[in-house]
Design a protein around this nucleic acid. Structure first.
Lengths: 338, 338
DNA sequence: ATAAGCCATGACAGCCTTGTCAAGGCGAGC
DNA sequence: GCTCGCCTTGACAAGGCTGTCATGGCTTAT
């Protein structure tokens, strides 16, 4: 029996009008404590749940938050969903997931769902969070949105980020603390803003600790396993090889490990390897990878929080944003220099 | 301007009643072709989209399909979402994702969302698809559901599966065709139905081709990297080692590769390794893993199709189900015996 | 030609909740 | 003791769409 208890029955049982029940449900002020309690009891007794369709038709809210993604990493996407849901459930909101095909006509994809569903807000993950068309459509439709780790136009909207520079700095410092002075670096895809930030953190740490950033030990990569593999082949070719390599993401670090394996260089005895992102692959390799963990779930939860009005935004103020802490995950792929 | 064009305006522009517009929108019969065209033009001209809340309040459908999951594999979850969405979009349905915490009070989690949202159907992934409480609540609420790769009670509901036995059979046959006769096998988690099916396929193939299933070359694993690693250590310990190992999932196969690496056994020259599932990790290892690909997206699409009434179900008939084809993905980790 | 029946369309109620506005009750200030 | 104003509550309409039923025109069977 798909119990379709309506607000009327609750009203009748508790002896008040449906409007008062509505008030209690929406935590509106100006309801006597006594009345409130009585209504709540009736709600519990009847196991009543408001009908979300009727609610959003009558009111302004849809109780739906969208998550748009076009992200190649399933682990990332899932974490975002988990984080966002955690916060949404507290307020009775639900998550609508919408994969976006950035190659296709983006506007044609999102415009219909926006006008059909009337979502209360949207969370944008990279790289859609930097897609100008998406942002434009969202703004035109008047749908609030929060971007996760955006690259560009930071002031354009609310967003949540992690401090990539500092994370890369600390990872480099970790290697330096282990005695490494000659640390190779593999850059990420040049179109991705994080690439520059991570390189900057690396360079800063080297400079601050008095070690030179050797051009020949900095390679361009593209965030893929293959690009990391190839970069590592170049870095480890001659005799003048670095004692540690910091790849700006895990996939590339895995490429480095593969090369080390082929060259019979023991990790971490002969070569320390560090990654960035803490992807699932980082634990599925031997030795397990030292890396940086982004608090993805927490970031998504923060994004949902921003949307649900955790922070009220005044007129004219800059859009709110949050900067979250990363976590250095030291595992077995980095060790003292020998 | 979040254009809130209503059905009235479409009706006015096309010179018919709102009911007729509604009929066109819902592809109902008994509308003159001429009228239908005129309405469609008006819809296009005004860029009208029906309001889903109003729609579901008035009618019976909510235009929402839920996906419940409690699956440790993000890649799997994402694929399911992608596959389901593909089919849902065709019909104007949207996807609500709901992670379930199987450890907690499952009924308390899903009961509210079911009665609040009134979803039209739910897709259940393993392992929630075998959670009796979940099934019971869904049935009590009268919400149709389709299970993906269920283990138990196949006739209880509609479901979509892949032929694990045949897949394991063919993978084994592939190894045999390469000249292997002594093929080790690592079983999956005993609580997971697929484990038995995959083992059965392996055993069948061995027997049919006249090779003995050697007890000492069959190890128990638990679908984790670590369990694969340990099983491989045992299998590869003595001199009497198999020339190939078929692990019943990729994570364990990766564990096998790690051991082979440590023991300096070249893959595939000295040892062939095969996995199952085609997880992302399968391509991020060197050499890349030969494995079995489940058509997860297609399976999810089929599930959505079942829900959306792709197959009408008569009274008293058995719940509909679909059996999809797998794909043998031969990469570099398997080779001829030497 | 006439009755029966189907097709195409429209009028209207209803889905369940929230927003608006009005009304009654009661304490505070003069 | 009376007015003012706030607190609490309720009546009613509105929100956009679909279901039901009625209507009139036209085709088919007799």
């Amino acid at each position: 029996m798909s119990s379709k208890v309506t607000i009327h029955e609750v009203a009748r049982l508790s002896g008040v009008s449906i409007k008062t029940v509505s008030r209690v449900l929406n935590r509106e002020p100006n309801v006597k404590t006594d009345t409130r309690t009585r209504v709540q009891e009736a709600v519990a007794a009847l196991n009543y749940r408001p009908n979300i369709s009727a609610r959003s038709l009558a009111g302004s809210k849809a109780y739906l938050i969208g998550v748009f993604f076009d992200n190649p990493s399933p682990a990332y996407v899932t974490d975002v969903q988990l984080g966002a849901i955690a916060r949404c459930r507290e307020e009775g909101y639900h998550l609508i997931v919408e994969p976006i095909d950035s190659e296709g006509d983006v506007a044609a994809q999102i415009e219909p769902m926006l006008s059909t569903l009337r979502m209360d807000g949207v969370i944008l993950t990279p790289p859609v969070c930097d897609n100008p068309t998406v942002l434009a459509v969202l703004e035109a439709e008047g749908v609030p949105y929060v971007r996760l780790s955006p690259d560009q136009d930071l002031d354009r909207s609310a967003h949540v980020r992690m401090d990539d520079v500092r994370a890369a700095y600390e990872m480099t410092a970790h290697l330096i603390a282990l005695g490494h002075t000659d640390i190779g670096f593999i850059k990420g895809h040049p179109d991705h803003g994080a690439s520059h930030l991570r390189y900057e953190g690396y360079a800063q740490a080297m400079t601050v600790h008095g070690h030179a950033v050797r051009e020949s030990h900095v390679e361009q990569g593209y965030f893929s396993f293959r690009s990391g593999f190839e970069a590592a082949e170049r870095l480890l070719a001659g005799d003048d090889r670095p004692t540690a390599i910091f790849a700006s993401n895990d996939d590339m670090a895995l490429g480095v490990m593969a090369v080390a394996n082929r060259l019979r260089l023991n990790v971490p005895e002969t070569l320390s390897v560090a990654g960035f992102d803490d992807t699932p692959g980082a634990k599925v390799v031997w030795p397990q990878l030292t890396t940086v963990r982004q608090p993805i779930q927490a970031m998504a939860a923060a994004a949902a929080d921003l949307l649900l009005g955790g922070t009220k935004r005044g007129e004219g103020e800059a859009p709110p944003s949050r900067l979250l802490d990363f976590e250095l995950v030291v595992r077995e792929s980095t060790g003292p220099v020998r």
